[in-house]
Design a protein around this nucleic acid. Sequence first.
RNA 1: UGGGCCCUU
Length: 245
Amino acid sequence: IVTYNTMLHGFCKVGRMDEALSLLQKMAIAGCDPDVITYTSLVHAFYKVGDLGEAQRYIQEMVSKGCIPDIVTYSIILDGLAKSGKLHEAFKFFRAMFDRDSLPDAVTWSILLNGLCKSNKVDEAQKLFDEMITKGFVPDVVTYNIMIAGLCKSGRLMESLQLYKRMTLTQCHPNAVTYNTLLNGFCKEGNINDALNLVSDSSTKHIALSLDSVANLVDALRKVGRVMEADYVTTKTAQWQDNPE
RNA sequence: UGGGCCCUU
């Protein structure tokens, strides 16, 4: 079953759903019953290619065969709902999880927070984030990244910086996505000095920034005539790429 | 062996 699931996931990952489904047939012929992971992979892949109908179909097939969806399955369903504009439905589903067997985990919370942030509902996202903490769930780096991105997107740069600082005080360390998010947000708003501070933070922590984000910042610097700093950042980041330590 | 974040416009 592990071998089949690994292969199936391989097909799903590259969107070759026809081949994934024929593998599902082969499993049946071989007498190998699909399990929760098989179905969850399929559902995820169908959501990703935008085929909500097929996703729904395999959720039903899973349940009808007595295969119990778990927290991963639920999270994928929630993400599918949130990303297809059905936030309200996603929340109903989410709230129902508390009354059922499976509690959400950090990923589940993050999916909903992301849905709110992407719909420009950062205030609601902040409330949900507070609720998450009040209820004793622990945000991870992705949860923080989502909130930081939401705050940046609505131009609330100082609040995003505060959250960044808050996360550095916890056991949750910023990663490359954290810095890319902040850098892009700050450059977009023209706050180049804070962006530069973040670059030096990231180098202190030995975190390699994405080339896109660096190019973005260098562009912003050149546009306001700070050519020497632009060159300096270019040189420095090139060095970190070659010799990260 | 399966789930969430930046960039992928």
